[in-house]
Amino acid sequence: MAYEWDFAFLWVLWPHLLVGLAGTAKLWAVALICGLGIGLVVGIFRTAPSRILRSIGTVYVEAIRNTPGLIQLIWFYYAIPMVTGWQASAWLAAVVSLSIYTGAYSAEIYRAGIASIERGQWEAARAIGFGFGAQMRYIVLPQALMRMIPAFGNRAIELAKATTLASTIAFGELLYTAKVIAEDQMRPLETYTAVTVIFTVILLPVSYGCVWFERRLARRGGVHRD
């Protein structure tokens, strides 16, 4: 017997999916901003003259990159109340863990971008009398950030996908909402198909945008590949 597709229920329930999508968007935006901020600091640590700062950066990046994101999420979900004494909401645990997760990966983007700036640029800035911080702020980062944009775009896509992990701690993002609807309607195939379509429609343009920007940079000689 062939499966009979029936999307009719979604015509009624789509506002719920929209609420879920809003949860995804909020989690994505906050974790992306926090993650890029953490990444900037850690990326600079990783290139700093101080060995201690470099080691701190390395330990953090390697610890996060070599453990599954799902385990980090669950770990934070239980660790936050133990450390802070507050009952961690699913939202807080998701934001904290995804920020830290994105921070580690974007730190690598910053580090590579900073490393791609020629030694002569640092030296010229140093010779004028700029200290490490000013060299970074006025000379290196402005040049490096441009080269990092495509990588940040890819990171944003990865993070959008990773937000679905938060469904495991019952945070009301798109996948969690879909799960509830699927069980309620006993129509998992249709529901998850809808989720897949939504992700594709939103992320595909971003993905193409990154490729386009990368090509444009490469044409202008702005991107150093390794």
Partner: peptide, 19 residues
Amino acid sequence: CAVRTHVGMVFQQFNLFPH
């Protein structure tokens, strides 16, 4: 850093800031 502000240096590779 303060000392370097009093010593001007010109490099073989110019090293102008391209941005």
